[in-house]
């Protein structure tokens, strides 16, 4: 596997505040890499350093195994935080500037605008755009060079539900081409849907880094509901149950062994007919909150 980005002991200090603290990470080609963390955890700062707009205090990073240069950035499509364009210029003119900087043909502009559904408004000044349209334009500008790597910081900020779904599909389709995507977002649901890998930052420190698929490995939770009155007692007597919690009139059983089928069989043998039986996937959100809580306890 080819390493697209490797970060080694990266640190950024603003006076006494450490925004990024000794961060080390690797992103492989084809990864869709989610960077999670509460507000102010250093996500934007990290991405800013990787894109050379923020000066690091110490540490190194390498794009495609080499020292970062402007030529590398030309192969990256990136948006940081809010969309940034010349307000008095039209979408087309703004993208012309991007195309000139990246040294790509102006012929790429119209397809990119079509892809984000801004083609009808391409001659309108950027300042007349709605927030969602501005966001779409910045995605168009990131696409203009047919990038090998995309860096997206809160790309769905301000988009309508349809827009969010479109961006999700866009990210998936770009990822399918074998492109690498680095995505910072607070929409954990989205991250879980599109990302292959994720990491969690807190106050600039890396708490966790791993595969999204690993989240629901291991412990299995099954949600059970039944009309029968003695459901709770029967469940408590189930030898494979590690923990039972009640949620909204239903019970969540954490299993030591087996799955929903075995549980259902057991219930049936105890003359309970489950009206509701659902294997719960552990959500990224839950994992995320647990990681943060753990680190709070450790501190």
């Amino acid at each position: 596997m080819e390493t697209v980005l490797s970060i080694k002991n990266l640190t950024k200090r603003y006076g006494r505040l450490t925004a990024v603290n000794n961060l080390s990470l690797e992103v492989q080609k084809g990864n869709v890499f989610g960077i999670l963390g509460p507000n102010g955890s250093g996500k934007t700062t990290t991405l800013g350093i990787l894109l050379d707009v923020i000066r690091r205090t110490s540490g190194e990073f390498y794009w495609f195994g080499q020292e970062p240069t402007k030529e590398m950035r030309k192969r990256i499509g990136a948006i940081l935080e809010t969309p940034i364009f010349y307000p008095y210029l039209s979408a087309t003119k703004n993208l012309e500037i991007v195309a000139q900087i990246k040294g790509v043909s102006k012929d790429n502009i119209d397809p990119a605008l079509k892809k984000v559904e801004l083609f009808d408004r391409k001659d309108d000044n950027f300042k007349t755009y709605s927030l969602g349209m501005k966001q779409r334009l910045s995605i168009a500008s990131a696409l203009i060079c047919d990038p090998e790597v995309m860096i997206l910081d809160e790309p769905t900020n301000g988009l309508d539900p349809q827009g969010i779904a479109e961006i999700r599909e866009l990210i998936k389709s770009i990822a399918k081409d074998g492109k690498t995507i680095i995505l910072a977002s607070h929409l954990l649901d989205e991250v879980q849907k599109v990302c292959s890998h994720f990491c969690v930052l807190k106050k600039g420190t890396l708490l966790y880094s791993g595969l999204v698929d690993d989240i629901d490995k291991g412990i299995i939770n099954v949600e059970v509901g039944a009309a029968s009155g003695n459901l709770e007692e029967v469940l408590k007597a189930y030898p494979n149950a590690a923990k039972i919690t009640e949620e909204n009139g239903k019970f969540v059983v954490e299993l030591k062994e087996g799955g929903a089928a075995e549980l259902n069989k057991y219930l049936f043998e105890n003359s309970i007919e489950a009206s509701h039986l659902l294997t719960l996937k552990k959500s990224l959100e839950k994992q995320f909150l647990e990681l943060l809580a753990e680190s709070d306890n450790a501190a």
């Binding site: 707009v53 990256i76 040294g103």
Partner: peptide, 11 residues
């Protein structure tokens, strides 16, 4: 407008 920032990001 922070466009200097975007110019650098773009390459």
């Amino acid at each position: 407008y922070k466009t200097i920032r975007q110019n650098i990001i773009d390459g």
